[in-house]
């Protein structure tokens, strides 16, 4: 077992087989730096719980194909990324810090899928981005590639 400590001083025990999906912790273990508790100053307990949930589910990923659990994992992944934007960004930051490649991939793809067909207005609202372009600048960008702003798939809803 490996002990992880979030920045709000909560400790979590994780199986080594699960936690080594994090390249960062794997390296620490290999270098013999993981004998006591590993402090994670960038990750709060709420986010860490999500990450550990993912690590535990994806333990022995390679075996999933043999045992036919691939669909199960796929379903888990779909459910897993079903979270708000802010929470998703927290998990992305944690996955990046801990260097968990698959989790990073999953969450970034989810973020991209959510943005893909959204209108400019919807993107601004969803991501809380203030528009600092002037009307002229906006028009210039649109004129550069007008077809990118047209099409039946463009979705103006915010979610």
């Amino acid at each position: 077992m490996v002990k992880l400590k979030s920045n709000d001083d909560k400790e979590f025990e994780v199986e080594e087989a699960a936690v080594i999906q994090s390249e960062m912790i794997k390296n620490m273990i290999e270098d013999g730096c993981a004998t006591s508790v590993i402090p994670l100053p960038n990750i709060d307990s709420k986010t860490l719980i999500k990450v550990i949930e993912y690590l535990n589910k994806h333990i022995n990923m390679g075996k999933a194909a043999e045992t036919g659990e691939e669909d199960d994992l796929k379903e888990f992944d779909e459910q897993f990324v079903n979270m708000g934007w802010e929470e998703l960004f927290d998990v992305i930051m944690a996955a990046n810090y801990l260097n968990i490649h698959e989790l990073m991939e999953l969450c970034c793809q989810s973020a991209a899928d959510r943005l893909k067909n959204k209108s400019v207005r919807a993107v601004r609202e969803m991501l809380k981005i203030t528009n600092d372009l002037t009307e002229e600048e906006e028009q210039e960008i649109i004129n550069d590639a007008p077809w990118a702003f047209e099409g039946p798939e463009i979705d103006d809803t915010v979610n």
């Binding site: 992305i92 930051m93 990046n96 990073m104 970034c108 793809q109 973020a111 991209a112 899928d113 943005l115 893909k116 067909n117 400019v120 993107v123 601004r124 991501l127 981005i129 203030t130 528009n131 600092d132 372009l133 600048e137 906006e138 960008i141 649109i142 550069d144 590639a145 077809w147 990118a148 702003f149 099409g151």
Partner: peptide, 26 residues
């Protein structure tokens, strides 16, 4: 670098569109 990781997974049409969201994205 995280924003880039997300944007790289978008199709080109979406990228051209997102240039119009804000100055920094542009």
């Amino acid at each position: 670098e995280i924003i880039i990781e997300i944007l790289l997974r978008l199709p080109v049409k979406s990228l051209l569109k997102l240039r119009c969201v804000s100055k920094s994205l542009f």
